[in-house]
């Protein structure tokens, strides 16, 4: 600290506490709402203190069938989300680490072209090519499948560039020593390169897991069969009630369950998470 300004320190703490409160407020409200019975919402104001219906709410939400919009057990949605997030994270890491390896450790015709093709994916987020991408997936018969949910999303320029940077910082001599030690390309990749990229892979996994878990538009497009709904995409369908007031306690319980896994990942692996975030810079 440069000099002492008591009032500045107090102000800093007040700002931070206010920030934490604002950031936590919506989640607090959601958690509280999920502990009440549906009848508690009729009074005209959201309850602000926890109720005693938590166990019942969560139990019925996880099982499903509480109403017509919530016929799918949340457990299924959680499972789908988990599968999608893990497949996307692993898929992106695998194909990116392989392409970065090819680009850094080999020289071959059309290398530059391959690099630019990967680069271009940065400029084409799903949102800008929604309709034709949907058509391709439909033509390939991948609607309502895990393949359709994940494969179209696993190309990754950012991950490829990250691994490329990591590989470029690994001394050339390591590969030369390995060659003299009789390691071929794939042996070197497995025995030396992958172990040396371990923390980068872990950090990237955290970021990509969250990315996959939080997908919204894509699952909405690709899944019509409720058995493939992911929780983040499913919650919207629940809240869209035409005929009656939504079942707030169930919706909020679902929201809490939807954010719990990635939030736990971020808090538990904060260090890796920050590393992954700052290194991929998006």
């Amino acid at each position: 600290m440069v000099e002492n300004h008591r009032w500045l320190d107090v102000l800093a703490h007040l700002t931070l506490i206010l920030g934490v409160v604002i950031v936590a407020f919506p989640v607090y409200i959601a958690v509280v709402a999920s502990t009440h019975e549906p009848a508690d919402f009729v009074s005209g104001l959201i309850p602000l203190l926890p109720g005693d219906n938590a166990v019942a709410t969560y139990a019925s939400v996880l099982e499903g069938g509480v109403s017509s919009q919530m016929s799918v057990p949340i457990l299924t949605m959680l499972k789908n989300s988990l599968i999608m997030a893990v497949l996307i994270a692993v898929g992106k890491i695998v194909i990116s680490v392989l392409s970065a390896y090819a680009i850094v450790y080999f020289r071959f015709p059309f290398r530059q072209l391959a690099f630019w093709m990967i680069f271009v994916t940065l400029m084409l987020p799903v949102e800008v090519r929604i309709v034709p991408t949907f058509q391709v997936v439909a033509d390939l018969g991948m609607l309502n499948s895990y393949a359709g949910l994940t494969i179209p999303l696993i190309a990754s320029a950012t991950a490829t560039f990250l691994f490329r940077q990591v590989f470029l910082t690994i001394p050339d001599e390591l590969m030369e020593a390995a060659r003299i030690d009789g390691a071929g390309p794939m042996k070197f990749f497995r025995d030396i390169l992958l172990p040396l990229s371990r923390t980068n892979i872990a950090a990237l996994f955290v970021i990509l897991f969250i990315y996959g878990w939080n997908q919204y538009l894509w699952p909405i497009l690709i899944t019509t069969d409720a058995g493939f709904y992911t929780i983040v995409a499913g919650i919207k369908r629940m809240a869209d009630v035409v005929d009656s007031e939504p079942l707030w306690n169930y919706i909020m319980a679902t929201a809490v369950l939807a954010m719990l896994p990635p939030v736990i990942v971020v808090i538990a692996m904060q260090r890796l998470f920050v590393k992954g975030l700052v290194e991929t810079e998006k």
Partner: peptide
């Protein structure tokens, strides 16, 4: 011949030991 087939061993300036 590949380096491994030449029956030589090399010592590098930065040692190039496998860090892991």
């Amino acid at each position: 011949l590949e380096p491994a087939e030449r029956d030589i061993a090399m010592v590098f300036q930065n040692y190039a030991l496998y860090p892991h």
